[in-house]
Amino acid sequence: MWAYFTRRLIIAIPTLWVVITVAFFLMRLAPGGPFDQEAPLPPEIMANLKAAYGLDQPLWWQYLNYLGNLLQGDFGPSFKYKDFSVTELIAQGFPVSIQNGAAALFIAVLFGIPLGATAALRQNTVTDHAAMTVAMTGIVIPNFVVGPLLALIFGIYLRDTMFALPVAGWNNGALPNRILPVICLALPFIAYIARITRAGLIETLRTNYVRTARAKGLPFRTVVLRHAFKSAMIPVVTYLGPATVFLLTGSMVIETIFGLPGIGRYFVQGALNRDYTLVMGVTILAASMVIFINLLVDMAYAWLDPKVRYE
């Protein structure tokens, strides 16, 4: 198992290299550059700027230079946030995003799985339909609607009550500031997890081995928890892989609505500003997380299904 784990980590290096290379050249294919503005800069200033950042060199040289710097842990300076290096920007923003994302993930699992399991155990009853309607609503209403709505309710309507919550800002991670963004982030994931849990459990409850377990005279609770639950969780774990990456790398929408200093916005702003180094930085971060979390998901499969063995 550990040999397999190590091998997967080593294989991750060429994968990352491919991601870096493709991202690097794709970024450069996009028209425009980091210093283009509405009013064009005088050519001399532009030339100087480009020279300062090494953009006057041939592309292959820039690429090799970038790789060389990366190997020394240097992600380069941001082209847009001129006083910061990419490492500094990520170091500031990532903790905010990862804390909100982890909290949202925790809440999504904590509520989503019991909700889906309840619906599955009361299949086709009012409880089931109610739970699935709520879940569907959670999926179809986009969070740029839910966010302002929550802000309206807790920031305006309930302003003078004990339920009033700040609607924007990070405030050094004060708990009240985190509540609305985390709820907003978690809602669609609660919904998805509930639906997948329900489907997985309903399918498992129909299997022959659940029938065997019932024929043994085990209480239904034991049948569900001991015999059905693990297999039912396989699709949930599959979904949790990409969901975790999405949540931990921050959501531009949520961070913009609630004014949070996370890294979510860098993905979009970096690309729009042609902030080459920043885009590369967040891409490498996201790609590393995808690789690592997929590895964790594969390990979880081995735990859920003994047929899966890694040599």
Partner: peptide, 19 residues
């Protein structure tokens, strides 16, 4: 069930809990 009346099912391949 299981204590005084027990059942042996048709398909042993799928009738045991895999995990």
């Amino acid at each position: 069930r299981g204590e005084r009346i027990a059942m042996i099912f048709q398909d042993p391949m799928t009738s045991l809990t895999p995990h």
